[in-house]
Each structure stands twice: as structure tokens, then as C-alpha cells.
Nucleic acid binder design. Structure first.
Length: 579
RNA sequence: UGGGGAGUCGCCAAGUGGCCUAAGGCAGCGGCCUUUGGAGCCGCCAUUCGCAGGUUCGAAUCCUGCCUCCCCAGCCA
């Protein structure tokens, strides 16, 4: 992850956050600058990312993580990772482990500050007792349904619970017995005593604790009452000395409650600031929907390369650097937005173009026999590993009489703008020779199965002494030296940009792209890729970026296509409605 | 018809009363270059800032009214 460092480096500038061509400013920085100006937190900036371990992290979380992390870095502050593990019915150790792994991969550093909200349960309990003693919280015996009825609606005030005015003594007794496990799940809750008529539903005596006789992944059987999000979150922030509690928009109307608890307790009071979460076209981002895709078998798992999860993106070949630059590019604001997938793809291409070694691989092979090439001769052609990086050097690629080229690189009746191989036409084989197609061999069904071509020995390396310049350069692989590979080509998981809003009567699962995965088994790759470790990324010249999948075996590597190269020919074809 | 937010180019997003006849990126469109129809380079792409009024010498930026979209009635987070 060392290569992240240059990107990760905080910008050193004066506090005014000018946009002097470096990191763009945003409204959060403006707020912090104001805090720094007035001395609200003594110049301190401390952020956190508080995931609930009930699913895998996705690209939307990456945005949230990096907003928090970059903010801390920019101001020379600190960043915590804290599991918001207050609901044992939904949380699992598997998710805790996966979240840590994904965040490490992303390249954020919480140093020694990995925390669990559940480690604060004792303190939270004491504070709850304090609120009860202050007459600001009470045990309610109403059922869940009754509480809902008493809460009122968006336009009508709620009613106070008949248990709202119990004595402090009774509340203390009941609450302690809740904690001791004397009551069954759902029989009672602890509620804050605020205002049942508040236009903000969150302030209508919100539930602070519920009874849950449940094994907790981090606390085991220590507790059978669990704090609700609103009661746990702000106090956890406070305990950790968080200054700026950055969260997503839907918590905006929780802020008054966040503030209320902290004010009642009179403890360190962070500032909650809300920003819009990330939406991406052609995918879904809610944990609920992602879980359905996994559990109902629409994808192979949380790390399926079609998933927007960090583990999926990683397996697909996305790099942390690409995700960093993408999240920087999309900015930070409060308006709901949907970012086009093409922007994410742009950032992987940009990163991979810089660093991926180039290699030749033929996805759909078409046999080519060079009729005038000596039988049994093998030449090692010198190929450049990365034209963007001279230090990457060169490698030898074997060339011989029988080759494979891409089926798409030949057309028997080429349209005007098709520059590749055709009968009688000469093209260049990259780093090798010019070849001319002399004869087309077909099977009984009329399919082209082989090309018989002649090569020009004077063009070795790809240049003609007479200055001839073919309009096309094709990639190729020597048949006898090629290694076989499985290649998985991916398309968007959904056929429409906005699967979250399916048409009447349809579910988002009805919009899944049936062609989101195409498996090619007979691909032929140049021998240099043999033995590449899972995770290794190459550019297959003229085609795209491909990443070695963990499913690979020693004899047959499996590659995932991360993203295609920009393809102007494909665009021309599309425009002309051509095949 | 309660409360809380948001509306600037197809998609993000700067902009905080004059240097805005509105940055930048993506997408798109032309062209150059090219041993990847890749990359790179050059150019084009909002007289207009949800709408309507108003204030001002001057408004995307201030005021008023309206419209549209999002969030909130879990003992989820």
C-alpha cells in the first residue's frame, strides 16, 4: 500500500483552506475552519468511521471512510475505527473481520484506535442511570405496537405513555432488573423523556434500551439490554474525543437528539455534520439489497467481481488508488446524487494505465498460419512492458509459424472504417512482422476457421524499410507457446442505470443483467503470464485490464476483466448500427 | 396539509454581491499524434444558475412567494 502514500499525504497549507489547485475544498472543511477560527475544539480534529458489522463494505462506505480519513489528515488530526455493534441480532464476527481487511486494503490507518461501541456499554449504562435520576428517562412497559400507536404520526402529535411518570426509584429498580435479565425480550424499554408532541419524531421519547437475550459477537453474554443507535452513537463519539462526527444525510434530523443526550450529560460534545451518500448507476448500494443478491444466489458471494463491495472491486482488479482518486473526484456535498459508473471506470483506467504491465492475450482465437515462415523456427520478439513506464523494461515474446489472433480482428467483407485484417490486406503484428492475408479457410458451415497469411521478413520488429505503415496493429500469440486461460468478462450487474427504482410491479432483481458474466474458456495468453499470483493485474493490449482470480489453478489461470480499454472502433460500430 | 434537507451543463461539482457573458472532472463531439482504433495532446460543449417577483449601480450569490425532489412515524443503523 506504499504507493498510496503520495496520494494520502495531507496537504500542508494555512488554515484558510484555499483552493490553490490542490485538494478541493468542501463545506465540511469550511465548518471546521470556522471551528478553528473560534477555537471550539482547540484546533483539534478527530473523526471516525463507525460501521455496523452486519454486512460487507461497499464503494459508498469507501466514500464515507475517506471523507472522514482525509478530513483528519488535512488538519493533522486523528481517525478512529469504531464498530457500532449495538444490535447482536444482526451482527457477526465475519463482518468485523471483513471490514477490517477491507479498510486496511483501502489504506486508511487508525493506528491503535480500533474501538467497539460495545466496550462502552458499562459507561452507557451509568449514564442512563444518571438520566433516570435526573427524571429524564423512564422504563416503559408498553408493547412495541403500543409505542408505535402512542408515537402519533408525521402530522399529529403523540401521546404520553401511562408509564411516563413513574418514580425515579421504580425506574431505577426496573432498569436494573432489565439489565439483570429478569424480563423477556420486548417486555420493556428504557425511553428518554423529551417531548411526545415534537414535530421531530426522533424527539418523541426515543427508545434508549431494548431487552435482547442474545449472544453478542464482541461481548458474548455479558448483556441482555442493548442501547439503540441514538443513545450509543453520540456518547461513543464523546468518549473517544471525536470533534467532527461525519455521517450521512438521513441522520440530519437525529442531530437534535444527538445534541440533547450530550447536553443532558454535560460531556464532550462533538459536532455532527451530514453529507450525501454515494449512489452509483447500474448497481445497488443498500446492504439489504446486496445481501439479497448474495443470499439468493444472483452473485457468487460478497466478493463477486460484479458487486460494488470493496472485496468485489478488489477481486475485479480495482486498486485502492483508483478508489481514492474517484472519491476525491466526486466531491462532498449535501445534494442527493447518482454518479455515473463511467467516472469510476475512468479512475481505474487512469491508475492501471500508469502501472499495469502490458501483455498479449487472445480471447477468441482465430488460427493464422504464416505460409512462408520457416517450419519449426521460433523467434523471441522484444515487447515493451509498459509504454507509460520506461523503467518497466521489455520482455521476449515467442513468435512462430502458427499464431492466434482475435476473431474480431478479421473480417471477410470489411466495412469502410474497419482497418484490421481482411483478405488481401496487410496489417502489423505488434512487435513482430507485417502479414498479409492470402487465403481464408472455412469449415463446412462457412465459418472462418483459419487464415493463411504471408509475412514480410523485412518488417521484423514492426517497421518497414520502405516506410509502409499499416493502419492496424494486431495482438497475437504463438500457438505452440500459448497458455490456456479462463477469462471472465463482466458487464454491469443491472441493465438499467437506476435499479433502485424498478417499474411498477417489478423488483430490482428483475433488472439484473443476464449477461453480466460471460465466461471464456479457450483464451490464449502469451507465456510470460504463467504463474502470476492472484491479484496480479495486466493490460491485455487493445482489450482491457485483467486481474488474476483466486480461482486460478497452476495449469489454467483465471482472469477477471476489470474494465475494457476505451474502444473507438466499438463506438463507430455502435453509431453505424453495425454488427 | 408536521419537521428536516436539497435544487448550477447528460452525470458529479466549484462558486459565499462586482475579476461569473459561471471553475474543474466524467460523458459527448471534432482534430492531431500513435508499432495498443490504448495512452497523450488540442479544440468544442451553461449569456445561464428550479420558477416568478423584488432589493442593488451590479445577484447564481441578499429578500419574498411558489415549484420539484429526498429523509423521518424500527424495541434497525
Amino acid at each position: 500500500m506504499a504507493s498510496s502514500e503520495e496520494i494520502l499525504k495531507p496537504r500542508s497549507d494555512d488554515s484558510a483552506a484555499p483552493s490553490d489547485g490542490g485538494e478541493p475544498s468542501n463545506f465540511i472543511y469550511d465548518i471546521i475552519d470556522e471551528h478553528n477560527r473560534t477555537g471550539r475544539f482547540g484546533g483539534r480534529v478527530h473523526t471516525r468511521f463507525p460501521p455496523e458489522p452486519n454486512g460487507y463494505l461497499h464503494i459508498g462506505h469507501a466514500k464515507a471512510i475517506l471523507i472522514n480519513y482525509r478530513t483528519a489528515q488535512k488538519y493533522g488530526g486523528k481517525f478512529n475505527l469504531r464498530f457500532d455493534d449495538t444490535n447482536p441480532t444482526k451482527e457477526e464476527q465475519e463482518y468485523i473481520d471483513a471490514i477490517i481487511e477491507d479498510m486496511r486494503w483501502l489504506g486508511v490507518d487508525w493506528e491503535d484506535r480500533l474501538f467497539y461501541a460495545s466496550d462502552y456499554f458499562e459507561q452507557l449504562y451509568e449514564w442512563a442511570v444518571q438520566l433516570i435520576k435526573d427524571g429524564k428517562a423512564y422504563v416503559d412497559d408498553l408493547s412495541a405496537e403500543e409505542i408505535r400507536e402512542y408515537r402519533g404520526t408525521l402530522t399529529e402529535p403523540g401521546r404520553e405513555s401511562p408509564y411516563r411518570n413513574r418514580s425515579v426509584e421504580e425506574n431505577l429498580d426496573l432498569f436494573e432488573r432489565m439489565k439483570r435479565g429478569e424480563f423477556p425480550d420486548g417486555s420493556r424499554v428504557l425511553r428518554a423523556k423529551i417531548d411526545m408532541a415534537s414535530p421531530n419524531m426522533n424527539l418523541r421519547d426515543p427508545v434508549m434500551y431494548r431487552i435482547l437475550h442474545e449472544e453478542h459477537p464482541h461481548r458474548g453474554r455479558d448483556w441482555c439490554i442493548y442501547p439503540m443507535y441514538d443513545w450509543a452513537h453520540g456518547q461513543s463519539d464523546s468518549i473517544e474525543g471525536i470533534t467532527h462526527s461525519l455521517c450521512s444525510l438521513e441522520f440530519e434530523d437525529h442531530r437534535p437528539l444527538y445534541d440533547w443526550f450530550l447536553d443532558q450529560l454535560g460531556i464532550h460534545h462533538p459536532q455532527q455534520i451530514e453529507f450525501a451518500r454515494l449512489n452509483l448507476t447500474h448497481t445497488v448500494m443498500s446492504k439489504r439489497k446486496l445481501r439479497r443478491l448474495v443470499e439468493e444466489g444472483y452473485v457468487r458471494g460478497w466478493d463477486d467481481p460484479r458487486m460494488p463491495t470493496l472485496s468485489g472491486l478488489r477481486r475485479r482488479g480495482y486498486t485502492p488508488e483508483a478508489i481514492w482518486s474517484f472519491t476525491e473526484a466526486i466531491g462532498v456535498s449535501k445534494s442527493n446524487s447518482v454518479v455515473e459508473l463511467s467516472l469510476l471506470e475512468h479512475h481505474v483506467r487512469q491508475d492501471l494505465n500508469r502501472r499495469a504491465p502490458r501483455v498479449m492475450g487472445v480471447l477468441r482465437p482465430l488460427r493464422v498460419v504464416l505460409t512462408n515462415y520457416p517450419e519449426g523456427q521460433v523467434e523471441q520478439m522484444e515487447a515493451i512492458n509498459n509504454p507509460e513506464d520506461p523503467a518497466a523494461g521489455t520482455r521476449p515474446v515467442p513468435f512462430s509459424k502458427v499464431l492466434y489472433i482475435e476473431q474480431d480482428d478479421f473480417m471477410e467483407n470489411p466495412p469502410p472504417k474497419f482497418f484490421r485484417l481482411a483478405p488481401g490486406r496487410e496489417v502489423r503484428l505488434r512487435y513482430a512482422y507485417f502479414i498479409t492475408c492470402d487465403e481464408v479457410v472455412k469449415d463446412e458451415a462457412g465459418n472462418v476457421v483459419e487464415l493463411r497469411c504471408s509475412y514480410d521478413p523485412a518488417t521484423r520488429g514492426g517497421d518497414a524499410p520502405d516506410g509502409r505503415r499499416p493502419k492496424a496493429t494486431l495482438h497475437w500469440v504463438s500457438a505452440e507457446h500459448a497458455i490456456d486461460a479462463e477469462v471472465r468478462l463482466y458487464d454491469t450487474l443491472f441493465t438499467v442505470p437506476d435499479p433502485d427504482n424498478p417499474p411498477e410491479g417489478k423488483s430490482f432483481t428483475d433488472l439484473i443483467n443476464p449477461n453480466s458474466l460471460e465466461v471464456i474458456t479457450g483464451a490464449k495468453l502469451e507465456p510470460s503470464v504463467r504463474g502470476a499470483a492472484p491479484g496480479t493485474i495486466y493490460q491485455f493490449e487493445r482489450q482491457g485490464y485483467f486481474c488474476v482470480d483466486p480461482d486460478s489453478t497452476p495449469d489454467t489461470p483465471v482472469f477477471n476483466r476489470t474494465v475494457t480499454l476505451r474502444d473507438t472502433w466499438a463506438k463507430i460500430q455502435q453509431k453505424e448500427g453495425g454488427a
